[in-house]
């Protein structure tokens, strides 16, 4: 009886969401996703940091990878470089001005598969209220069943941005104008 009731719904959902276009929610709940950045310090070393709070989802179809799509929303104030005074400065108008621009985001606009597990993800990155096109070099890390009854898929993407392009007014010196961003995410299939 239950099945009879559910069957039309299942069929309807199969039409609107073809089984091949898999939808994934990024596993921020259990922190299997990371938005990291690194920037050179004076040109002598790398400084690493991350955004602790974000959420997002993606879709990926192994048969049609070019239709892959990613969307991530980031709480700019959650920036964490493992130093409270520096983080306070990074949140100030000198850098991210998180009171004025509390949210950063990335939304893909297109994906170009390059071989089986690699690709180039085009998208729009919004930071400090400025939206700019960026390209992430993406590789799939893996996909498959997890031990708890779910299905997961993970990607690793990197891009380099210039801080001044996004209106960050502070100049940290010639070696530190660019920031490498890494989006390392695992999604749980919905």
């Amino acid at each position: 009886m239950k099945l009879k009731f559910l069957l039309p719904l299942i069929m309807a959902s199969a039409i609107t969401h073809p089984a091949s276009a898999e939808e994934y929610v990024i596993d921020t709940d259990k922190a299997h996703a990371f938005i990291q950045f690194r920037v050179q310090h004076l040109g002598y070393s790398w400084l690493y940091g991350r955004f602790n709070t974000f959420s997002g989802d993606f879709s990926y179809d192994e048969a049609k990878p070019e239709q892959a799509r990613v969307r991530v929303t980031i709480d700019a104030a959650s920036i964490d470089s493992n130093h409270a005074e520096r983080d306070k400065h990074l949140r100030s108008p000198d850098f991210f001005d998180v009171k004025q621009f509390p949210q950063a985001s990335f939304e893909s606009t297109g994906y170009k598969p390059l071989g089986k597990e690699k690709g180039r993800l085009e998208g729009k990155l919004t930071l400090r209220g400025v939206t700019k096109p960026v390209t992430l070099e993406v590789s799939q890390v893996g996909a498959g069943n997890d031990p708890w009854g779910g299905y997961r898929r993970g990607f690793h993407g990197t891009t380099t941005i210039t801080m001044a392009d996004f209106g960050i007014p502070t100049n940290l010196g010639p070696a530190s104008e660019k920031v490498e961003l890494t989006l390392s995410i695992e999604g749980i299939r919905k």
Binding site: N82, H83, A84, E85, D87, K88
Partner: peptide
Amino acid sequence: LISTADGR
């Protein structure tokens, strides 16, 4: 409390 916010 600013300078010691991260436990340093």
